[in-house]
């Protein structure tokens, strides 16, 4: 290895870089620190403290936080499965057959631009009449609608990238259309499908507006449980931080391990970062 020469330019670069990174990371890191503090330690201005797990104990005994956690897992997983069932064939069809030209594809993505508030009141009243308020099914249906256009659009990008020649070759070999999808396209599109699944999961996992309006006790999601700490007269920062730690874990793991695909996912497939 060649020894690099010392230069002031590089020192400045690293100082700036480290400050920027800590600006992004520190607030999140601080939540993890707070989760292990007692309420007294949280409310003191000294930085020294002895770690404790009392917040987590409180969370899972007194607050029964396992219920909203389980709810959110059920809601995100089921709605994501349904989204993928609808979106995979649709995205493939848009990419390969485009039966309606591009109009329908753009209609699909434009639903993502639909203001959520316009859907909120009508669906609230409809769900009230159908007794779907505060049920898993109700909120799952909302998430299916809101995520499927995004999922279709994102996967469309991945399907378009698969060269058509591969499919023609298979057709010549006598594969049926369904065989082509199952044996050729699906394996090739696996990474795209995986990424889309993960992003759909994250959207449902993080969603608050509809969860807050449409669920209360039975189907209460983690985001709603989090907001309840804030509503209390005496805010229990410790327990709130502990729940946040757990709720953020999967998304932070995605940030670290799937960074290659994050820009693509967040830009609805528009930017292949």
């Amino acid at each position: 290895m060649k020894k690099k020469k010392f230069s002031w330019k590089r020192v400045v670069f690293w100082i700036v870089l480290i400050s920027v990174v800590s600006l992004f990371v520190f607030p999140i890191f601080w939540v993890y620190v707070t989760a292990f503090k007692t309420n007294a330690a949280i409310r003191s201005t000294s930085l020294a403290f002895t770690p404790t797990i009392e917040n987590f104990v409180f969370l899972f005994t007194t607050r029964n936080a396992q219920v909203p956690l389980l709810n959110t897992i059920i809601i995100s997983v089921v709605s994501t499965l349904l989204v993928m069932l609808i979106s995979i064939p649709a995205a493939y069809s848009f990419a390969r057959y485009s039966p309606s030209g591009n109009t329908l594809l753009f209609t699909t993505i434009s639903t993502r631009m639909f203001p959520g508030v316009i859907a909120a009141i009508p669906f609230f009243l409809l769900f009230r009449d159908l007794n779907l308020l505060d049920t898993h099914i109700g909120i799952i249906l909302m998430y299916v609608y809101f995520n499927m256009s995004f999922a279709t659009f994102l996967m469309y990008g991945f399907f378009v990238d698969i060269p058509e020649q591969v499919e023609y070759a298979a057709m010549v070999d006598g594969y049926s259309r369904l065989d082509i999808i199952r044996k050729i396209v699906f394996p090739l599109a696996k990474p795209g499908i995986a990424i889309t699944t993960i992003f759909t999961l994250i959207w449902s996992w993080n969603e608050f507006f509809f969860a807050f309006l449409f669920t209360g006790k039975v189907a209460k999601a983690v985001s709603v449980e989090l907001s309840l700490f804030w509503g209390a007269t005496q805010i229990q920062w410790g327990a709130m931080a502990a729940l946040m730690c757990i709720a953020m874990l999967p998304t932070l793991a995605v940030a670290i391990f799937l960074q290659k695909y994050i820009v693509r996912g967040l830009s609805f497939g528009a930017v292949k970062g």
Binding site: L17, V20, V21, F24, V25, P27, I28, W30, V31, T34, I202, W205, N206, E207, F208, S223, L226, S227, F229, W230, W237, M240, A241, M244, A247, M248, T251, L252, V254, A255, I256, F257, Q259, I262, L266
Partner: peptide, 24 residues
């Protein structure tokens, strides 16, 4: 590592983000 760390704020929920900031 730098990329991964910088991505973290993006993926946490906006609600959690607002609670974090009102705390710090």
């Amino acid at each position: 590592i730098v990329r991964g760390l910088c991505f973290m704020p993006l993926l946490i929920s906006p609600l959690a983000m607002s609670l974090i900031w009102s705390y710090i």
